[in-house]
């Protein structure tokens, strides 16, 4: 039997992480969490998570950044908002999950071939580049980048979709792509983080806890 020490030391905390998250607009109410577990009880995906949503809330508030950003929980959130509308302290749990996902992506905290963040990023790239998303292309790219075998397993679904006219063979896109590019350039130039009182002090991918 392999034994594992589970103790947490103060040096395991990234002090200020919780405060940082709670200073993001929409995430403030986390301060009031009473750990009642309503979120986990309602979450349809909580049964697959390594930490329940309630535990993620507490770990975040207590500055256990590494544990939170490496958890499967944030990726399993399907944004159904069941937790958010029922939370007795009106904590916007779904929005906090989004915030944590963004941080995990920016700081490289997820397994390489884990499909969910890959999908999110590919979605981002495609919509950014073409203005629209063509789902079947997106899914194909995702499978190629994460698990080619799974992609092969999907051929039947693809064929079925094709037969029913639900598998477009052409990538969709908008006409005025340059307009969108100019708009996005504005956001890239402006440091929103600075404007938001430094809610993302680490910036893109910079911290030592980095990728693994």
């Amino acid at each position: 039997m392999e034994l594992k020490r589970t103790i947490k030391y103060e040096s395991d905390r990234v002090k200020g992480f919780g405060r940082e998250v709670m200073s993001v607009p929409g995430c403030e109410q986390l301060e009031h969490c009473i750990q009642c577990g309503t979120c986990s009880g309602l979450c349809p995906l909580s049964i697959f998570m390594d930490y329940t949503p309630r535990q993620v809330m507490e770990l975040t508030r207590s500055d256990f950044k590494t544990e939170v950003l490496r958890s499967t929980t944030i990726w399993l959130c399907a944004s159904c908002y069941a937790c958010t509308v029922e939370c007795p302290k009106q904590i916007r749990i779904t929005d906090i999950m989004y915030e944590l996902k963004q941080r995990a992506i920016h700081e490289g905290f997820y397994p390489k071939r884990f499909p969910i963040p890959v999908l999110a990023q590919e979605f981002y790239k495609m919509s950014h580049k073409r203005g629209r998303v063509t789902e079947n292309f997106l899914a194909t790219i995702m499978f190629l980048k994460t698990d080619i075998l799974a992609a092969l397993g999907m051929w039947r679904l693809g064929l079925n979709l094709l037969r029913r006219g639900r598998f477009p063979l052409k990538l969709e896109g908008i006409k005025r792509k340059s307009e969108l590019e100019r708009m996005m350039a504005v956001v890239d130039k402006l440091s929103i983080d600075a404007l938001n009182n430094g809610h993302q002090t680490g910036g893109n991918g910079g911290r030592q806890h980095g990728a693994h």
């Binding site: 577990g37 309503t38 909580s46 309630r54 535990q55 069941a82 029922e86």
Partner: peptide, 30 residues
């Protein structure tokens, strides 16, 4: 120890059929 989010009457496994089902996080057991 856990606040109940909802009470439903749909069964996930046969032992739940015909019953009211409480889904809750046992926060102490995790």
């Amino acid at each position: 120890r856990g606040r109940v989010g909802e009470v439903t009457d749909w069964a996930f496994i046969p032992e739940e059929e015909g019953k009211l089902v409480i889904r809750v996080e046992d926060t102490l057991a995790g």
